[in-house]
Design a protein around this nucleic acid. Structure first.
Lengths: 203, 203
DNA sequence: CAGTATTGGCGAGCGCGAGTATCCACGTCA
DNA sequence: TGACGTGGATACTCGCGCTCGCCAATACTG
């Protein structure tokens, strides 16, 4: 298929596809002449991945590029792959966050995590912000969250596909980024339900 | 205190504070003369709230404005307040998402939620994106997530402060936005731990 | 009381990210 | 043959979150 059909079958405009090609998010099609190239199913899949990462997971282009690079050239170990996914994912957190509070939580949970991990700084930044706003999150409370989340995370790790590495990359990245949205949405829906039950349905 | 001290005690630059004043995120100080105004502790608190919403929760200015408006003029019921918080929070989701998959999940969980709720569309969008990427999220799996999250959400609703309404608004908004970060970070940390345990620590 | 520093207020400008638009020299197909 | 589609490149736009510059009125400082 040519660019027009690729556009039609994904709903992404031709200029945007051209932009992604330029940005290296999408590999070039197979050139059949100076002004003609063929695209295949893998381009459709890749385009959907890129759109999902940009639209749903809100990744900036640079992070999407890191992810697609990992898809094209998968790292050796699953652990490295997870690291790439985590590094690509927002939010960008300041390097100089004091990680003590977060480390206390992680230690309390008995988790082994890298002390410079971005997720650790993300947790610390959120806990700091909560404290700054007058709602300090105690390590005990945060640990309770951790314990509730652990089985979900375990299930996710268990289900990493062991087939093609592209599949594994897609699973990890999309799973991390998109299930985060799923969890956030579910939490809000649970709030709505509970609020309706306890405080009566408002407008 | 005047703007300079407000700036020093929050770490926000003077031009940025001026910008927030212009944008209505921060109420004006009490004017003592044509070129002088006094700011108080409430400005410090507000500024921290604004910064937390922008930096940690990644809200756009317009959403922060909606939230601070709710703080200044709290809605009647908790349920309305929750609605304002949810509407202010990102992500902006398309109106025309097909909400069937998400509705099935919510029904399966026995939750009562408004059928035009943004969170419902957010869930549907994430599930669609997962399917588009070749990782369909079955209603059963998503329901399992829902059941894991429910107790956390219940605890959060139970702990809404009943004192000042400003406190309640801050709790709801910050709780929704900032604990989302806490949960996301914990999930990633759990992944790291589990991945290290199962696949050995890579770099 | 002179001189310097701050302030509030406001319009304009900037840097970045993510596309859009415009061109152009080809190809393709009716 | 001729209208339309294509690849490739460069330039432009737009929204957002600040950031700068300027001004006149004050406030502190020696």
């Amino acid at each position: 298929m040519r660019i027009g059909e690729l556009s039609r079958s994904t709903g992404v405009t031709v200029p945007t596809i051209k932009f992604y090609l330029r940005e290296g998010l999408l590999p070039p099609g197979e050139a059949t002449s100076a002004t003609q190239a063929q695209y295949g199913e893998e381009h459709v899949r890749r385009l959907r991945l890129v759109r999902a990462l940009i639209e749903v997971a809100r990744l900036p282009i640079a992070s999407v590029r890191a992810v697609t690079a990992a898809v094209d050239d998968p790292p050796e170990s699953f652990h490295d792959l997870l690291g790439i996914a985590h590094d690509a994912l927002p939010p960008a957190v300041d390097d100089d966050v004091d990680v003590a509070s977060a480390t206390a939580v992680v230690d309390g949970l008995g988790w082994q995590v890298h002390p410079t991990s971005r997720a650790l700084r993300q947790l610390a930044a959120a806990m700091d912000a909560l404290e700054g706003v007058g709602l300090p999150a105690s390590p005990e409370v945060v640990e309770r969250y951790g314990r509730a989340i652990e089985p979900l995370a375990a299930q996710e790790i268990d289900q990493v596909p062991t087939g093609s590495s592209e599949e594994a990359v897609t699973y990890v990245v999309s799973g991390t980024a998109l299930y985060e949205q799923v969890i956030a949405a579910l939490r809000r829906l649970a709030h709505q339900d509970l609020s309706a039950r306890r405080f009566g349905a408002g407008a």
